[in-house]
Amino acid sequence: MTFYSFKGGVGRTTLVAAYALHLASKGIKVAVIDLDLEAPGIGTLLDVRTNRGVIDLLADHIATGAMDLDDSYGYADAFGDLADKIAVFPAGRLDTAFVSKLARLDFASDEIGAPTEIPVSNALKNLLRRLRREGYGAILLDARAGIHDLAGLSLHGFAHVDVLVFRGTTQNIDGLRLTLDVLNRRRRDDLKPWVLVHTLLPASQEDYERRRSEIQQRVYDLFIDRIYEGDDVPQLNDRDAAHETMPLRRKPWLEDVDTLRGLADTLLADEELRAIAQRIDEPWDEDLSKSESEDAS
């Protein structure tokens, strides 16, 4: 699944880490891939250091067609006993060579659904296939902010679920509008699952309620204008509808941290993070129920 934000600084990477921890606590083997190549961070947040990374895997595959995972990932040491359940693929070693590799990658892409596939897209797909063969039960993509390059690639059909992370500012809402347009273009007969997460809400209850209500209305209006069709349109307060936003308030204990070491229990106990994780789980649970029904029939 893809965790995406149109703007940076919204807590997207922290949310990726928290959801990886949630899955690991359920015994699921998780791979976390840092696709934010121009502003990487998931490796530092989870105390992972490697000699190679995602940028090397993509570049090698484009050059040779091969993909050697050795020394390109490590385990989330920040999460203690659950570390070995979470394999983290950082962007790569941040040095002058990293900048040169990034400059050589060709991210130019055709229109969504075009018959030809660009090399970076093909390399990323091959990485995902390789990880599935390695037995990972979940693959989380921490996408670059903005509708372009790897952010655009990861939104163009790779993910089972898209987690769209945003703040309640005009720039963020405008970005969400554009993101919904992109996602709506790629759908066929059904609505691709996504989860909307509204972050950095005020801590005080009165300000929280006011701001959450205001932004929920604006998001609902976007869905009426861009997504919902026909007569069967959900109501504003339909908590199961696609327009429902999951709230996440400012958390002083998360601000200005360089690593999540020592915070695993706090993350797992946080009610808002647990509610978001359960919302992201829902499409998985639905697919599992469908598979079990088909096996029984």
Rank of each mutant, 00 (worst) to 15 (best):
F223V: 15
F223Q: 06
I224H: 03
I224F: 00
I224Q: 12
I224T: 13
D225F: 08
R226H: 04
R226K: 10
R226Y: 00
R226I: 05
I227A: 07
Y228C: 04
E229T: 07
E229R: 11
E229P: 03
E229N: 05
G230W: 07
G230E: 06
G230D: 03
G230C: 05
D231W: 08
D231Q: 14
D232F: 07
D232S: 11
D232I: 05
D232N: 14
D232E: 10
V233P: 00
V233W: 00
V233S: 00
P234E: 15
P234M: 11
P234Q: 07
Q235E: 15
Q235L: 14
L236E: 10
L236Y: 12
N237R: 14
D238I: 13
D238C: 14
D238E: 13
R239V: 08
D240K: 12
A241M: 11
A241H: 05
A241S: 14
A242K: 00
A242Q: 02
T245Y: 00
M246H: 08
M246I: 04
M246K: 06
P247V: 08
L248W: 01
L248I: 12
L248G: 04
P252R: 09
P252W: 02
W253Q: 15
W253K: 13
L254Q: 03
L254N: 03
E255H: 10
E255Y: 09
V257A: 06
V257S: 02
V257H: 04
T259H: 12
T259A: 15
T259P: 07
L260G: 03
R261G: 09
R261V: 05
G262N: 09
G262C: 10
G262H: 06
L263D: 02
L263S: 02
L263F: 01
L263G: 00
A264V: 11
A264P: 04
A264L: 05
A264C: 09
L267F: 02
L267G: 02
L267P: 06
L267M: 14
L268E: 06
L268W: 02
L268H: 03
A269I: 09
D270P: 10
D270Y: 05
D270K: 11
E271I: 07
E271Q: 13
E271F: 04
E271K: 14
E272T: 08
E272S: 13
L273A: 03
L273Q: 03
L273E: 01
R274F: 04
R274G: 03
R274V: 07
R274L: 12
A275R: 10
A275H: 02
A277Q: 02
Q278A: 13
R279M: 00
D281V: 01
E282V: 07
P283L: 01
P283C: 05
P283N: 09
D285S: 12
E286W: 11
E286S: 10
D287Q: 13
D287R: 15
D287V: 10
L288N: 12
L288S: 14
S289K: 08
K290I: 15
K290A: 10
K290P: 01
S291L: 15
S291C: 12
S291I: 12
S291F: 11
